[in-house]
Simulated scan of single mutants.
Amino acid sequence: MPYLSRIRINPLRAESRKLLASPRAMHAAVQGGVPGLPEQARTLWRLDPDNPHRPQLFVLTTDKPDWTHLVEQAGWPDADGEHYAIRDYAPLLQQLAPGRSFAFRLTANPVQNTSRPDKPTTLQQTRIEAGERRRGFRLGHRTATAQLNWFLSRTERWGFEVPTASHLDKTQDPDDDTPRDIRITKRQRRSFGKGLGTAKEAHVVMNSVTFEGSLRITDAALLTERLLAGIGPSKAYGCGLLTLAPLPDRE
Results as ranks from 00 to 15, higher is better:
V71C: 03
N109I: 10
Q56R: 05
D78T: 14
D66W: 04
F102I: 01
R46K: 11
A103K: 04
R100V: 12
T62D: 14
V59P: 06
D63T: 14
D80P: 09
D66I: 03
G99H: 10
A85L: 13
P55Y: 07
P77G: 01
P110I: 06
P52T: 05
Q94H: 15
D88M: 11
P65C: 02
L70C: 01
T61N: 08
Y89N: 15
V111I: 09
R46M: 11
Q73I: 00
Q73G: 05
A108W: 08
E72Y: 05
Y89W: 15
P91H: 02
T62V: 08
A90V: 14
P55H: 06
V71S: 11
D80K: 09
L92W: 12
P98R: 13
N51P: 00
G75T: 14
D48F: 06
L96D: 07
P77F: 01
G99F: 11
L106Q: 05
H83E: 04
D80R: 15
R54V: 00
A90R: 14
G81M: 04
Q94D: 14
R105S: 15
P77C: 03
W45P: 04
R105D: 14
K64I: 02
G81T: 05
N51K: 02
E72D: 12
A103I: 06
L70N: 07
Y89H: 15
D78S: 15
A97K: 12
F58M: 00
L57V: 03
L57T: 12
Q56Y: 08
P77T: 08
A85T: 14
D48L: 08
A74D: 11
W67N: 06
T62L: 09
D63N: 13
I86L: 14
R87N: 11
G81I: 06
N51I: 02
V71I: 11
I86N: 09
H53R: 12
